[in-house]
């Protein structure tokens, strides 16, 4: 039986959970600097330990509808892609607690009947009459950098291989 530790949080009265291995820190009421013309789901940037991080509006990302009146918490995720670490921060309505989840508990995602985007949900568990959706932050937030990845790809075509001047 495999046990993992998860952090649970609330978004529009729904419960979500994310593996603590992917969480760097939870910030409360951080000042968010707006960035003009930023994509809609990016709220702005924050100063996190001297680095500048984009802040994702998780409600919009999950198609849950925006609500500016809710007191916000920011979860800073520690993600990796292609062996590179990149932190991303995301705003949630509230942070609940840290729970242990057994791998047997996890059920498949119901195909219908959910009011939000289910692409990012990896599984569902049940606790005290509540459903908690497990999410994979790497899937959720990979879209943010898609553009960057595309740009890198075109550069690679041009980045002539280091040894390309070998004698033929």
């Amino acid at each position: 039986m495999e046990k993992s530790t998860y952090l649970t949080f609330v978004l529009a009265h729904e419960f979500f959970a994310v593996n603590v291995a992917n969480v760097l820190e939870v910030l409360e009421q951080q000042q968010i600097t707006r960035v003009p013309k930023a994509p809609e789901h990016i709220m702005g940037i924050i100063n996190f330990r001297g680095d500048i991080l984009p802040v994702v509006n998780t409600r919009l990302k999950f198609s849950l509808g925006d609500d500016e009146n809710i007191k916000n918490y920011i979860i800073v995720f520690d993600l990796t892609r292609n062996h590179n670490r990149y932190p991303v921060s995301a705003v949630v309505d509230g942070v609940k607690d840290v729970i242990e989840i057994n791998s047997e508990e996890v059920m498949a995602v119901p195909e219908m009947g959910l009011s939000f985007d289910t692409r990012f949900i990896t599984g569902v568990i049940r606790r005290n009459n509540d459903f908690i959706m497990l999410i994979n932050p790497e899937k959720v937030f990979s879209g943010i950098d898609t553009e960057a990845v595309l740009i890198e790809d075109t550069t690679n075509q041009y980045n002539l291989k280091k040894n390309s001047y070998e004698i033929q």
Binding site: I42, I52, E147
Partner: peptide, 27 residues
């Protein structure tokens, strides 16, 4: 100057951000 990340690639007229003395950010 610090990079503001790829999320803002479409914001053409910004090239980075800087932390001010009080911890706030200037673009």
């Amino acid at each position: 100057i610090k990079p503001i990340g790829t999320a803002f690639n479409n914001v053409k007229f910004l090239s980075g951000a800087s932390l001010l003395g009080d911890g706030s950010i200037a673009l």
